[in-house]
Structures are given as structure tokens and as C-alpha cells.
Amino acid sequence: MSPVATTTARHTPTVPPAGSAAHQRRDRPARHRSESKAGYVFLTPWLLGLVTITAVPMLMSLYLSFTNYDVLSDWESMEWVGLDNYRTMFTEDPSFWHAVKTTLVFALVATPLKLAAALGVAVLLNKGFKAAGLFRGLFYLPSLLGGSVALAIVWVNMFNRDGAFNSFLSWFGIEGKAWVNDPDFALGTLILLAVWQFGAPMVIFLAGLKQVPNELYEAASVDGASPVRKFISITLPMLSPVIFFNLVLETINGFQGFTSAFVLSNGTGGPVDSTLMYTLHLYIKGWNEYQMGYASAMAWVFLLAIGLVTAVVFRTGKFWVHYSDGED
């Protein structure tokens, strides 16, 4: 029996109850010592990078979060302020809570929409047909723009009073607004921008879909399963590690959402703070007002909060993510 056939057997369209596969392979022989050594051998570059490149700046920023560091002054004149930055953040900075709210709205709306768009289009494009490659490229194009100056001008012009979106609405007799300049809708245009750039998760979904063995679908077809049924019983579970990856990453990205807010509002978070994301507020504090100690404190609060969210996502992953390697 080929290895693939084995997998097929384990992931028949009716997915086995979560975890049952895991129990089968807990009793592996005592290769542990050599494996442990090999583990660290393979991990060496990363560990080296962690120690020499990643850890030092992170720990420095943690230290700075307890100081009044202001970027410009001599390092010697920096003073230890204890928890002052943290206290100010929670009690004296109204923009902080406003930014938290804005970010939550953005992340909770944009992330699911973007993932749904990415998955939907990826499934549409997965079947081999002539133009599929072209379409893949075309749908990925918006992501290539990143957060460039050009993008800001383009987006503003799409959603301005005389922009393309309003021309579209006028076909239906609706008179639009200057969406980008309206404090009630500016965040909405940012969310649309995020969804528009669904190319990155789409590519990851496409790559993941290629890992799903065709035999599964063939077997299901023999059983007479409908396309919807196949999607739910085969595609989703087989794709779940990749869905999980995209979910974690896009959640983090959503909360970090800086670039588009920065370029669209010229770095201000306007109109009237309507696009003042958490990271943008942090940037303004650190780089425009030179309160880098405070900005660092904001960054570490962010890390803790998102760490918690990520941990929760990882926990729930145990219930719906199915790994072919038999672990969870």
C-alpha cells in the first residue's frame, strides 16, 4: 500500500473524530536522543538569529517601555519611569481607547471577509482550466501594490465624491458620498482595501489545495457526493492547517493594520481620528511626538493582547485543524 493510500484511508470523506488519529502514534521508539540532537542542529540558524538579531532589540524595547526615552536626546539622559507609561495609556490617553476600538472593528470585520474572499476565489481557481494561471496573477495584482504612494492616490480617487464607486452607484440612482473623507465611512474604505488585497492568503490557499490528494475526491465522486458535500467533508478538513495558518496570520495582520491607514490618511489617522489604528497611534507617539518609551509600552501591551488572542486561536485549533502528521 502506498503512503498516499494510507492517508486516504485515514481521511475518508467522513472525517474521523478529532484526535483519534493522534492517539495511534504516540508510541514511537527511542530515537528521541538522536532526534533531539538533529532538532537543535536544524534549529541552529533560527536560534542564532533569535539571540543575535531578534531578541536584543525586543528586550531593549521592553526596557525602553519603562523609561521616558525620546529618540533624540542622549541615551544617558533617559530616565526610568516605572509603570508610568502603562498607567498613562490606560487612564490618561483618550486616543488609546479610541484606537483600540477602531482596531477591533477593523480586524473583526476585515479579517473574515478577506479570508472568505481568498478561499472562495482559490477554490474557483483550483480547477485546471486554460486561463486559470492568468486569473491567479490578476487577482494577486492588488497585493503587489503593497502600501505605496500610488496606492493611496488610487484608492482616494476610487472612493471620493466624484470617484468610480459613486459613478457605479449612480447607475442605480444612488447619490454617493465622499466616502474616504467621511468620518463615518473612512474606516469602511480601509476595510475594503484590505479585502481587495486578498491575494496573499489566496496564494497560500491555492498551494494548500494542491496538497489535497485527488484520490479523495475521486472516491467521493464514486460515492455520489455533491460538490458542496465534497467541499465540506474533504476540502475544508484537508485544508484546515492552511486555513489555520491564514487565520492566525491575517488576525495578526488585521490587528497590526498600519500601512493602509498610514498612507490613506497621510499619517494622521483622520478624518477626525476615524482611521486611527492602534499601530498608527503608536507610530505617531513614537515618531512624531518622540515619546518612544510610551510607544514601546504600547507595543508590549499589544504583544500581550495579540498573544492572548493567538493562544486562544491555537487552542481552538485543536478542535478543527486536522494534521496529516497525526499530531495535534
Binding site: 465624491r161 458620498k177 465622499a178 473623507n181 467621511d182 497621510n266 483622520g270 478624518p271
Partner: peptide, 12 residues
């Protein structure tokens, strides 16, 4: 109108 004023509030 305010939306146009907002555009003009940029320094560019």
C-alpha cells in the same frame, strides 16, 4: 463642504 475641506487640510 466638510469632506472637501478635509482634503484641503492636507499640506500637500
Amino acid at each position: 463642504t466638510p469632506d472637501v475641506i478635509h482634503e484641503g487640510n492636507a499640506t500637500d
